[in-house]
């Protein structure tokens, strides 16, 4: 039953979304084929699908990690911005770090920056009672402002008109695999998958993970069992933030090789969809992140091959899938076999 709902929701969402293209005068089946070829048609396309999936897996993990202790992390977008900015800053300023350690150093910077950004929301929730949904939304905008300032005034790349930072030094760059042609798939691909497995082990096989889940499922019981709610919440938001911050590794070290302003097409928000489709399970997030990555890549060629459907369709599909999976009341009725009444 656990797996029926997300799969059914995906199918319903895709079906409705493709049906909509009918109104734009397209053949939905044709649109589906464009999706498939554009997402998986060549090794380059597949590489790009993976490139889009990597950040989505990480932001999905971030949202789901926070949700394990009952917190909503709408701030993955801001956390990944801070993470990417930190990785790019490290790569641009500390040029003398030896090559075998440089990417790890940048990764730690990214995780720390994202973690601090998430930790602020955790602290404000735990110590000051500020609702994390509000604070993380606000922190997203603050992160965007800081990133814009750093990119435009402090680390501006003088060689281009685009708002981006000076390129990272070569010792930070991650080698991309030749197999995927020019698609920027590097060892950062494994990072997402390894992190997902580590998150699973952390949550289900360590005492700290148990405490986080205990706080999420029953706060007062956890408190009675001498688990510090505020400590757990702060720590949890720090970890959630650092997971989102790790997006900076693949994005900066192997894709852009600098920080580009507004590089993220809403990875942080799509992460909410990724996490919810997977019902918060870290291993399932690998697959749902891949699905959303494929949707994003698949939609990118729609402009070329159709008259009226654009890549924005992937947003419609995303939204429909979230809606389909989130309708708790409806699903309970359907699964319990009762007649559905609105």
């Amino acid at each position: 039953m656990n797996i029926i709902r997300p799969i059914a929701a995906t199918i319903i969402g895709l079906f409705l979304g493709l049906l909509v293209t009918f109104f734009a005068g397209e053949n939905p089946l044709n649109v589906f084929l464009i999706f498939a070829t554009s997402g998986f048609g060549s090794t380059y396309d597949f590489g790009m699908t993976l490139t889009y999936s990597m950040p989505l897996i990480l932001t999905g993990l971030s949202v789901s990690m926070a949700f394990k202790s009952g917190l909503f992390n709408i701030g993955a977008e801001g956390q990944l911005t801070m993470g990417a900015l930190a990785a790019a800053t490290a790569g641009a300023l500390f040029t003398s770090v030896p090559a075998f350690i440089a990417p790890i150093f940048a990764g730690i910077c990214a995780a720390l920056a994202g973690g601090i950004w998430g930790g602020i929301a955790g602290y404000l929730k735990a110590k000051r009672g500020a609702h994390e949904v509000i604070t993380t939304i606000m922190l997203n905008f603050i992160a965007a402002g800081i990133a814009s300032y750093v990119t435009v005034y402090l680390l501006k790349d003088p060689n281009t008109q685009n708002p981006q930072t000076i390129p990272i030094s070569p010792n930070y760059k991650l080698e991309t695999f030749a197999f995927f042609d020019s698609a920027p798939v590097s060892s950062a691909l494994f990072l997402s998958v390894i992190v997902a497995i580590l998150v699973w082990i952390f949550l289900y096989r360590t005492p700290l993970g148990y405490e986080i889940r205990a706080v999420g499922s029953n706060e007062s019981a956890a408190s009675t069992a001498c688990i510090s709610i505020s400590k757990t919440q702060i720590l949890n938001m720090f970890i959630a933030g650092s997971l989102a911050g790790l997006v900076g590794v693949g994005e900066v070290l192997s894709r852009a090789e600098c920080f580009k302003l507004d590089f993220s097409p809403g990875y942080g928000f799509t992460g909410i969809a990724v996490a919810f489709l997977a019902r918060g399970n870290p291993i399932a997030i690998i697959f749902s992140g891949f699905l959303f990555g494929a949707l994003q890549k698949g939609a990118s060629d729609l402009e070329i091959f159709t008259h009226n459907v654009t890549s924005d369709l992937s947003l419609v599909l995303q939204a429909l899938i979230i809606l389909a999976v989130s309708a708790d009341g409806l699903w309970e009725k359907i699964l319990s076999g009762k007649k559905v009444k609105l």
């Binding site: 909503f72 909410i272 924005d312 947003l315 419609v316 939204a319 979230i322 989130s326 609105l342």
Partner: peptide, 19 residues
């Protein structure tokens, strides 16, 4: 009516509109 999570659906509506 469906008692879905308000924050998740709220995010979905914004994504839906922007698509």
């Amino acid at each position: 009516n469906f008692k879905a999570n308000q924050i998740v659906v709220g995010t979905a509506i914004t994504i839906l509109a922007s698509g």
